[in-house]
Design a protein around this nucleic acid. Structure first.
Length: 368
DNA sequence: TCGTAAATAT
DNA sequence: CATATTTACG
């Protein structure tokens, strides 16, 4: 079944044993060497692709490395001894085969990944044709998906005075997505539909970004001289380039509120927890924090008089038992019965026709 | 990390 | 002017 055309091996994936076997039947040392090199090259190529996901697929990388090493070893031996008989260690076989499988799998989900997230555009062909898709942004704040799977809220514009800067910070490859990576979980990939290739955010004081919004801190523009304090807007706005505004689409907000409730109320839920429950990639802690702040404010406004006598911390036993993935309840059933919270359920009142209400604030998609 | 206030953008 | 979102700080 296996076509024995020499040229065929160009694009048909083979297991290491297969390759070796094939090579062993070739007497022409040049051809042999050529094929070997070619395969190693391909392996290394894939390695580069996988590299971006090494945190998620450490074993994959390992296997790949192993395979490359093995073939390289082969090259070496080939150099020494023109003819090599099959020496495929039995132990290796399964590994190699596995390796191939894994690799295939990887590519598969890889390509599907690019479907939802812009983070990994460079998956397949992209890498081959580095024409224009050169911006792999950090996984964190990828508010840059072309089409939002859920909703299309054109609630942002891109142009900015400092857009001129965005050039330099192209590769901000920060693959530190702990939870909101990509898997088969119902993760939602909503983000502001805008296409902002480089959400670079240069903050002078950008200490310890745990994992999500690790923006690079600019190294050049620090002039603590101290005069451009009052009206530092001469250049752009100030020393810090601001992030693109996160647009909280109704969907996003829904998720936010849901997570909030699941955590036992806006007063007890913490930004990080919320963010984790929301499972929205590209959402940063700060953004959630900010939204939470607003939400709390909103809630307070609606339920001013409450905990005068005693703040019942009881809530329900919503015990967020460690596992962030635990409760997947459909919601709506057991609302948190916070005795002192006004948010329990009534908070979601109106939909002020105003335009900037929690519900009613349908962001004018048309930018201004 | 979290909460909150100040700063900005819209 | 009010609100939404980002940044700075403790």
């Amino acid at each position: 079944m296996e076509l024995s055309l020499d040229l065929s091996l160009d694009h048909s994936p083979k297991t290491i044993p297969q390759i070796l076997h094939e090579l062993s039947s070739i007497s022409d040392s040049f051809t042999k060497r050529s094929k070997l090199d070619d395969y190693v090259k391909r392996l290394e190529d894939e390695m580069r692709k996988i590299d971006a996901f090494k945190r998620e697929l450490p074993l994959c990388v390992l296997l790949l490395q192993d395979a490359i090493l093995r073939l390289k070893d082969e090259v070496l031996q080939f150099k020494e001894q023109p003819v090599i008989e099959e020496f495929i260690p039995s132990k290796g076989i399964s590994d190699q085969a596995d390796e191939e499988n894994v690799k295939r799998k990887t590519r598969k989900w890889l390509s599907s990944a690019q479907l939802w997230s812009t983070n990994f555009n460079f998956v397949d062909e992209e890498i081959a044709n580095p024409k224009s898709n050169m911006n792999l942004d950090g996984d964190e704040d990828d508010r840059s998906v072309p089409q939002t799977p859920i909703e299309n809220w054109n609630c942002a514009k891109r142009r900015r005075a400092f857009e001129l800067f965005k050039d330099q910070n192209n590769f901000v490859k920060r693959a530190t997505n702990e939870d909101v990576a990509f898997s088969e979980v119902p993760k939602l990939t909503l983000m502001t539909p805008i296409s902002d290739p480089f959400p670079v955010n240069l903050t002078v004081k950008n200490g310890g970004n745990g994992g999500r919004n690790g923006r690079a801190a600019v190294s050049g523009l620090s002039s603590p001289a101290g005069q451009m304090k009052g009206q530092a807007k001469l250049s752009q706005q100030q020393q810090t380039i601001r992030k693109q505004r996160r647009c909280w689409s109704p969907e996003l907000h829904r998720r936010f509120v849901d997570a909030l409730h699941r955590l036992g109320g806006s007063q007890v839920a913490t930004p990080k927890q919320i963010r984790e429950l929301m499972q929205v990639d590209g959402l940063t802690n700060d953004e959630v924090k900010s939204h939470l702040q607003k939400y709390r404010l909103h809630v307070r406004k609606l339920s001013p008089a409450e905990g005068s006598s005693g703040e019942n911390e009881l809530k329900t036993s919503v015990t967020h038992a460690g596992s962030p993935d635990g409760p997947l309840h459909g919601g709506g059933s057991g609302k948190a019965l916070s005795t002192t919270e006004g948010e329990s359920m009534e908070v979601e009142e109106d939909a002020k026709s105003d335009g900037h209400s929690w519900k009613g604030r349908i962001q004018k998609h048309g930018d201004m």
